[in-house]
Design a protein around this nucleic acid. Structure first.
Lengths: 221, 221
DNA sequence: TCACCTTTGTTGTTTTTACAACATATTTTC
DNA sequence: GAAAATATGTTGTAAAAACAACAAAGGTGA
């Protein structure tokens, strides 16, 4: 476990808490670890989820597969990120989508109710932990809302442009790298990959953007 | 304030907390009240938001207006609901969308940091309040994710069908009432109103659904 | 390096949507 | 209860997307 203390101390959920404090807390929060192979499902729709999952190694996609097999990636998580926090406090704590390991992964499970309930021993950093946990969920909320912003655009070009604009703002530069390949980006924006590719070409021809692999540059208009 | 105690005790955020306890807490949480006229903006993009807003009277839409004037309704809130919780703990606590009163409204503001930080006097119900606040945000998270599910559908028919299916499941009946008029539903699903109307007609002709005003019935297929 | 596999890009066809313009209801207000 | 305002439904047309099928580029491993 000590191997991951550095990672944990850099994670959002343990931000501002010292490594030795984290170690104490882990017992208190009944932390358990499990391994997953690449491609393995961590939970699927309908599973009961009662803890927060924190990624120690690997990476995970939260995704939904519909009736007709269309896949949409709802979120892409990597080391230090948490997922599943939303379900564990709701009365019906059933997962509404799938979490799948996209690389061999190691997951730390923490009991969310214990996080949110101040313990009798009142660890000095418990307030910080509560605040952090809430902040993580808030940030997720904001990013879901952002995604809704992209999906609410009517045309593929508008979807692409609103997404790329945001990435550019995030990177504080007109030049930036996106964390998706073409198929993943198409799934994220809920459009057809080939149509998206050809739209990207057109946007480049029109001088709005230029790109090479996952590197994009927004042009002045 | 006492006038609203009944409403507050029924709200998600004060669930399980007795009316006299709530009254004590309100002082502790520095609750402030403000009135808004129908159509008035409660906050707009970029505004600094540092408290949770709870609707005592009226109703509020969280919405985004894009560059070209397209409106998308992100959420529709009514009495007892809260909004703005996500921004207030984030380091850049700037609103990323607009909150507008769609009826004359009365809003109670609560200091979120005070909610999440256990006070020195340690009110007995503070743990419950923390849990509730987290639950509210979680529920919002789940519903944003659901909306992403609808928006990720490719055709208007699929969007409508996935939304109506969920409403039906929620109502535990094939017959149910939706909380949107046509324009609002179109904005919510990010499609053109008239195109949506005609798609609804087609779906009715095809015997998939039937409807009258905001009442819908899903047909067996 | 060569065969194989994965990713990305291109093109044409069919389906669906946005948009506009208008008709018909329904609700509100005076 | 009539007029005005708002909401809903309909239709045709132009634009855009999905889909399919394939070409080209890039990576990977034997």
């Amino acid at each position: 476990m000590k191997k991951y203390l550095n990672l944990l101390s850099k994670s959002e959920i343990f931000r501002g808490i010292k490594e030795d404090e984290i170690l104490t807390m882990l017992n208190c929060l009944s932390g358990k670890i499990r391994k997953y192979k690449k491609g393995e499902y961590i939970f699927t729709v309908g599973d009961r989820v009662s803890s927060v999952a924190l990624i120690l190694e690997g990476s995970v996609h939260i995704q939904k597969e519909d009736y007709w097999g269309n896949l949409s990636i709802l979120n892409k998580m990597s080391e230090g990120d948490t997922f599943g926090e939303a379900y564990s406090v709701l009365s019906s704590n059933k997962a509404e989508n799938n979490a799948v390991a996209v690389a061999d992964s190691l997951i730390l499970y923490l009991d969310l109710k214990k996080i949110l309930t101040v313990c009798s021993s009142l660890c000095s950093f418990h307030n910080q932990l509560i605040m952090n946990t809430y902040t993580v969920l808030s940030a997720k909320n904001v990013s879901l809302t952002q995604k809704i912003g992209y999906l609410s655009q009517r045309t593929t070009r508008e979807k692409l442009f609103s997404y790329l604009s945001d990435q550019s703002i995030k990177a504080k530069s007109t030049s930036f790298t996106i964390p998706f390949n073409r198929q993943q980006l198409a799934d994220f924006l809920a459009v057809d990959r080939s149509a998206m590719c050809s739209e990207l070409s057109k946007m480049q021809k029109d001088g709005i953007i230029s790109y090479n692999k996952n590197n994009f540059i927004l042009k002045d208009i």
